[in-house]
Nucleic acid binder design. Structure first.
Length: 141
DNA sequence: GCCAACGTTGGC
DNA sequence: GCCAACGTTGGC
C-alpha cells in the first residue's frame, strides 16, 4: 500500500524547476535535520507519491513527485549518521498551483499538516487530502 | 523585516 | 532528565 507525502522547499534553495531538470534520475532530498521529517522519510517506499511545495514567496503546491530511492544516509551529513533521506523525481507540474490560501479556505483541507504545522519540511498527506489537492490542481490523482 | 512557533542544544 | 537559551523556519 502506497502512501502520500509533501516535500517543502524554499525555491531559492531548491526549486521545482531544478527538480524537473534532474529528470527520471531524481535527486536526493538532503539537508533535512529534523527528526520528525526524517522519520517520515524512513517510512517511505519507492513509488510513493508526494507534493512539491514552494515555501516563502510562492506558498503553493506546484508539482507531483515520486519516491525514486528508499531511505539512505544523507550524503551532506558528513560524519553524522543520524540523517537519512530518500531520492525523489518530478512527475508533472500542477495545471493550477494550489496555494496555501486555497488549502486554508477549503474545509476538507483544514487538518492538513501544511495548514496546522507549516514548519515541518516533510509531511504525510492523507488519501482524502491527496484527492482534493489534485482536483484543485487540475491533475489526475 | 518582523516575530511567533517550534525544535535542538547544553548546562545543571 | 529538566529546562532555559538559542537558532531556524516561514507566514505575515
Amino acid at each position: 500500500m502506497s502512501a502520500y507525502w509533501l516535500f517543502k522547499s524554499e525555491p531559492g534553495t531548491w526549486s521545482w524547476d531544478q527538480q524537473v531538470a534532474k529528470g527520471d534520475a531524481g535527486e536526493e532530498w538532503n539537508g533535512v535535520r529534523n527528526y520528525q521529517a526524517r522519520n517520515f522519510m524512513r517510512q517511505m517506499a519507492v513509488g510513493d507519491r508526494g507534493f512539491f511545495y514552494h515555501s516563502q514567496k510562492d506558498k503553493a503546491i506546484v508539482g507531483v513527485v515520486e519516491v525514486s530511492a528508499p531511505c539512505h544516509p544523507d550524503s551532506t551529513a558528513k560524519g553524522d549518521d543520524r540523517w537519512d533521506c530518500v531520492d525523489i523525481r518530478a512527475l508533472w507540474p500542477l495545471a493550477t498551483p494550489v496555494t496555501l490560501d486555497m488549502c486554508k479556505a477549503d474545509p476538507r483541507l483544514a487538518d492538513m499538516v501544511l495548514v496546522k504545522n507549516s514548519r515541518l519540511s516533510v509531511q504525510p498527506v492523507t488519501p482524502e487530502e491527496w484527492q482534493v489537492v489534485c482536483a484543485l490542481g487540475g491533475v489526475p490523482a
